[in-house]
Amino acid sequence: MDRKYVESSMITNIGYDESQAILEVEFKSNGHVWQYYDVPEYIWFEMNSAPSVGKYFHANIKNTYSESRVG
């Protein structure tokens, strides 16, 4: 999955696979990559345009969607 760099103190980059509704997030603190499942496409667009990607992640994604670490 292609990911794009984001301006964030917490997140390095994010990607989205619309065919599978998977959001992928790489974290700066440890370089780990996590996938979040069944994420609606509008969440991807909102996250991309959020003033703070990290705050958006905590408010709308973390503990909301099932997840697994992939890297």
Rank of each mutant, 00 (worst) to 15 (best):
M1V: 11
M1L: 12
M1R: 04
D2S: 10
R3K: 11
R3H: 10
K4M: 05
K4F: 06
K4S: 06
Y5V: 14
V6R: 01
E7Q: 12
E7Y: 07
E7I: 11
E7D: 10
E7T: 12
S8R: 02
S9N: 11
S9C: 02
M10L: 14
M10S: 07
M10N: 03
T12K: 14
T12D: 12
N13R: 11
N13E: 13
N13F: 06
I14N: 00
I14K: 00
I14V: 09
G15C: 04
G15F: 04
G15E: 03
Y16P: 00
Y16M: 02
E18K: 10
S19M: 11
Q20L: 10
Q20T: 15
Q20Y: 02
Q20G: 05
A21H: 08
I22E: 09
I22V: 14
L23D: 00
L23E: 04
E24L: 12
E24S: 14
V25S: 01
E26S: 09
E26A: 09
E26W: 01
E26Q: 14
F27K: 05
F27G: 05
F27N: 03
F27I: 01
F27T: 05
K28G: 05
K28F: 05
K28W: 03
S29L: 10
S29Y: 14
N30M: 06
G31A: 04
G31H: 09
H32I: 06
H32S: 12
V33I: 11
V33E: 10
V33G: 05
W34F: 14
Y37S: 02
Y37G: 02
Y37M: 10
D38V: 14
P40K: 06
E41P: 04
Y42C: 08
Y42K: 12
I43Q: 08
W44E: 00
W44T: 07
W44F: 09
W44P: 02
F45L: 15
F45N: 15
E46D: 13
E46V: 01
M47E: 06
M47R: 02
N48S: 15
S49P: 04
S49C: 09
A50V: 04
P51Y: 11
S52Q: 08
V53M: 04
V53N: 04
K55T: 07
K55S: 10
K55A: 09
Y56G: 00
Y56I: 05
Y56D: 03
H58S: 11
H58W: 10
A59D: 12
N60I: 01
I61L: 09
I61E: 05
K62E: 07
K62W: 13
K62R: 15
K62M: 02
N63D: 07
N63H: 13
N63R: 15
N63F: 07
T64W: 04
Y65P: 04
S66P: 00
S66V: 10
E67F: 12
E67H: 08
S68G: 06
S68I: 07
S68A: 14
R69W: 00
V70G: 03
V70Y: 08
G71E: 15
G71T: 04
